[in-house]
């Protein structure tokens, strides 16, 4: 068991290094660099940057050195906990990401709880009452939820919220708390703003999860062990919840690996539409501006979280599935 875990950890570490290299290379791939983007930005607003200035900027950020030297310098600093300066914001990367990270986590976890809380009971119901009218209704809503892009839904809700209820939807804070330091009032304000973005973010996931849960459970409900449990005299709801639902939930443990990066990045487009101060929009902006260290840090963070998430899934599966535990003793 320990050997298994250690092996997983080592593989995870190798993957993280590979991710850091790949993400660095990908960020470098588009023609030009931050200074080019900076210059074109300035010239769009009418001012000019001399060749000399550009050169000194490049020197300052080390952009004139070969790629692998840049990568080496970046990684040495990352290991020491210094993620570098954001070129665009002119502040340390950690500071720029700062609060946004926590807000993203709060919004995403709310979305996940909502997704699971809505989808799993509906999925179970749909499978147990397959081809009933409510099952068809949920199937219809589910497919509609899958088909409608999330950002469109966000726009529609914002529109109706504004025209019908005179609500200004969007953001996570009211104007007066936007830049205020943390206080109980601000937390309350956040909680009041949370449900809508969480709902929009969870919608597509909910629709998908209903379908998956229904399909998984339908598979399990046909298995002989369900009939066996019934033949023992177990009440129907206990039969369903103890045996097939337990088996149908198992595959979800392996999706935790993908949930973790989602928790941090959130849904980029929806966050942009709802103007949520989360990490997603920040990443988008950093990539457009070719703000290497900021984009690199976020991408690296997502990669590391994917690896950690996958590792956690493996541990959880090991914990909840006796067959995997047994397989490891052999």
């Amino acid at each position: 068991m320990l050997a298994y875990i250690l092996r997983r950890l080592w593989l995870g570490l190798v993957t993280v290094v590979a991710i850091s290299i790949v993400s660095f290379v990908i960020i470098q791939l588009p023609p030009g660099d931050f200074v080019d983007a900076y210059i074109s930005n300035l010239s769009a607003s009418g001012s000019m940057v001399s060749q000399q200035e550009a050169q000194s900027l490049r020197q300052q950020y080390g952009l004139d050195r070969p790629v692998w030297v840049q990568y080496g310098k970046w990684m040495t600093k990352v290991i020491q906990g210094d993620f570098g300066m954001s070129m665009e914001w002119g502040r340390p990367v950690t500071e720029v990401i700062g609060d946004r990270l926590w807000l993203t986590i709060v919004v995403s976890i709310a979305a996940i709880i909502l997704t699971w809380g809505i989808a799993l009971p509906i999925g179970i119901f749909s499978a147990v009452r397959q081809y009933s009218i409510p099952d068809y209704a949920f199937t219809f809503v589910g497919f509609a939820g899958l088909a409608v892009p999330n950002f469109l839904l966000a726009l529609i809700i914002m529109y109706f919220g504004f025209t019908l209820f005179d609500l200004k939807i969007g953001g996570l804070f009211s104007a007066e708390y936007q830049l205020a330091p943390w206080s109980y009032g601000k937390v309350g304000d956040l909680i009041a703003h949370l449900p809508l973005p969480a709902l929009v973010l969870s919608l597509a996931g909910t629709a998908q999860l209903i379908r998956i849960m229904r399909a998984n459970l339908l598979d399990e409900l046909r298995r002989p062990y369900v009939t066996t449990a019934r033949a023992r005299g177990l009440a129907e709801w206990r039969v369903v919840l103890k045996y097939p639902v337990r088996a149908a939930l198992n595959p979800f443990a392996s999706t935790i690996g993908y949930l973790l990066p989602f928790v941090v990045s959130g849904s980029i487009v929806v966050s942009l539409v709802l103007s949520l101060p989360t990490v997603g929009p920040l990443l988008l902006r950093a990539l457009i501006a070719q703000d290497m260290f900021l984009a690199g840090t976020i991408v690296l963070l997502l990669g590391v979280l994917t690896v950690i998430g996958t590792f956690l899934s493996d541990l959880i599966l090991m914990w909840i599935d006796p067959r995997i535990r047994a397989g490891m003793h052999e």
Binding site: R223, P224, Y225, T227, T228, A229, Y243, R246, A247, N250, D321, P322, R323
Partner: peptide
């Protein structure tokens, strides 16, 4: 009939 699948593995 099926002792293989008539017991839950969980």
């Amino acid at each position: 009939q099926e002792p293989m699948s008539s017991l839950s593995a969980f």
